[in-house]
Design a protein around this nucleic acid. Structure first.
Lengths: 354, 354
DNA sequence: TTCCCCCTTGAAATCGTTTTTATCCGCCGC
DNA sequence: GCGGCGGATAAAAACGATTTCAAGGGGGAA
């Protein structure tokens, strides 16, 4: 732990320039009470000796931490299963959104929503960060409630269904599910399954809404029995697909929640000997652009999660600057990436053979 | 930004207990100069009012930040391709390894090795963290050199090939590549390809060593022309497989660097009409347990990356406590998960048809 | 010329800890 | 009985910044 040639402090700079530390501080913070000439001289000297304010000192005095905490959910460690979420990309986006500010990103791992609330409490009460970013928003989300009540700055990836005003970035899951379902209906499918995550998640409900609306638009009854709630794992996707394809009146279309469940669905259908692309179709959300390499390549709705992360970071910065959360809300429609697998290319099973 | 009912400071505790803040500090840090009785009283009161030392104050005084920085590599943002690395799991492991300590995890995103060095410098010179964790170690790694020279505590995931003593955790890639190659040789393959990442990476060289040794052990010539260096993307896996399978004397076995390249290889072979499992075999490192759902399921060497992360965190804690880095080194052999796809079940292509 | 005000800068307090140094007190030894 | 010693606690300085308030100086107005 070699103590590096102690880096310059404001006092060093004071000795070098001859100005008092008070003036230095004001000059560097661009206070209007300091002359332009003085500011220039001080900045020049600061650059010269490579002075950068110590976050520690600033932090103690101002009460700010210059840290942004991100609550990163990880699946419970029991028998790891891929969940298809590339959180690294989200973090990368957040970091990009924070760039240019003095804020750094502190990652807190949370294993479930309950732990999320506890961690949020710790962050707020322990002044561990100045702002919070998290995802996995539930329809009724205790973290959102708590943070709103506490008046703590935060931005979420996703919206809860409560009447609260807060900054958020979200994907239009209702629309995406609607579009995916409508596309399968147009392709001739009637028995379409919705492979959905934890039903407490707000976007799981959005997906059900969109799914339902697509059937209503087509004047068709909604196949309630084909809505499956689980998690984001490949294992669940496979199990669900197998269950659904084995029904007396099997599902032929699958609207998966993401690429890992879609991969599982494909594996399940393959095990049953179902030829995806001929007798069944799969559509998914696309976080990581792996679907192009599946067998068959999947039609997806691409989520630019790094961009979403960047928005999250940018919004939090603006929120920290005092901006009204009502102006910091954004809804993105994912782009359709049409590949194959979503249209019935040959006969539909219920049409019999010719 | 409601200023929460200002949380208790050491001064509060001093007023409550009647002891001076100096005594409080010593008592809570378990200094031997304080009586047991006093310590007990102070601890009791601290628990009572919910006092926890402010990291800000501690940090300013001690010069420590109580932060651990993790350098998280992300692929360059040009046309995102999945790289199959679930860094979230590594972070989760690191956080688990840090649990119980006052250290928190700060994540710095780096886009390439050069930026990694710059970021490491920033962290060290700006006192942004007390320790550093990073991966993607190159055979000649400037970050390792710099940090060793600076005497800054760090732990790496991977080893460089320089003669430096530092704490690290690594996977025995040499062994894994050897075992995978030997398995394919035993399965009848002779034209075995090594799909490898960036050749500057230390473990890329380890893999070449193991690959080479497997051929040497079998008394066979090493197919140098089948060693492909690229990145971890699915795209590269596909391109490489297509190139290799189109050779006049095509590759029939593929030792992939991870699951995303393996997925790409499968996609490429499928496009060429190669029946993997009959005329070709693929083996991969397995970070995320998705290979079980590929078509066909892949035999893999499973890397418990969360455990590796936990080790990283634990090692760094011990390093920060002053332990000798020479004692903080660990090499793990990944577990073989035998599925299919790695044995030639039917005829070998060069045997002609019967 | 004198007084006042404003503009610029400086001194000092403060944030919450740790650590060094000082003080107080009782007890032991001579 | 007195001096010194050591054990327990307290006082004060320090870490590096920001911020409040005071001070100094110059210029304009009377």
């Amino acid at each position: 732990m070699a103590d590096h040639p102690t880096r310059p402090t404001i006092k060093t700079l004071s000795e070098v320039t001859g100005f008092s530390i008070a003036t230095i501080s004001k000059a560097l913070n661009d206070s209007p009470v300091v002359t332009q000439a003085t500011k220039a001289a001080i900045r020049q000297a600061a650059g010269q000796i490579g002075y950068a304010a110590s976050l520690r000192g600033m932090s103690l005095r101002t009460g700010r931490t210059y840290q942004v905490a991100v609550l990163m959910p990880v699946a419970a460690p029991s028998g790891f299963e891929w969940d298809g979420v590339d959180y690294a990309q989200i973090l990368s986006g957040i970091a990009a959104g924070l760039e240019g500010s003095p804020y750094r990103m502190s990652v807190q791992v949370v294993r479930d929503a309950g732990e999320g609330l506890a961690t949020a409490r710790q962050v707020v009460e322990g002044h561990l960060a100045d702002g919070l970013i998290f995802s996995g928003i539930q329809a009724q989300d205790p973290r959102v409630e708590y943070l709103c009540a506490a008046g703590f700055p935060f931005v979420t990836l996703g919206r809860c269904r409560q009447d609260l005003t807060y900054a958020h970035v979200d994907v239009d899951s209702d629309w995406a599910a609607w579009a995916a379902t409508a596309r399968l209906i147009a392709g001739g499918h009637r028995r379409i399954a919705l492979i959905n995550p934890d039903p407490r998640l707000s976007y799981a409900l959005d997906r059900i809404d969109g799914f339902t609306r697509a059937f209503a638009d087509a004047g068709l009854p909604v196949p309630q029995d084909l809505i499956m709630a689980g998690d984001l794992s490949t294992r669940f996707g496979k199990q669900a697909a197998i269950t659904l394809a084995r029904l007396p009146d099997p599902a032929t279309g699958f609207v998966c929640v993401n690429e890992s469940t879609a991969l599982g669905a494909l594996a399940g259908l393959r095990d049953l000997g179902v030829d995806v692309g001929r007798t069944a179709s799969v559509i998914a959300y696309d976080d990581i652009n792996a679907s192009a390499y599946f067998a068959p390549p999947l039609t997806t709705f691409y989520l630019p999660i790094e961009d979403l992360g960047r928005q999250l970071g940018g919004f939090l910065l603006r929120r920290l600057a005092g901006e009204d959360p009502a102006t910091l809300q954004q809804l993105t429609r994912p782009d359709l990436v049409a590949r194959q697998s979503d249209r019935l290319e040959r006969v539909l099973p219920w049409e019999g053979n010719t």
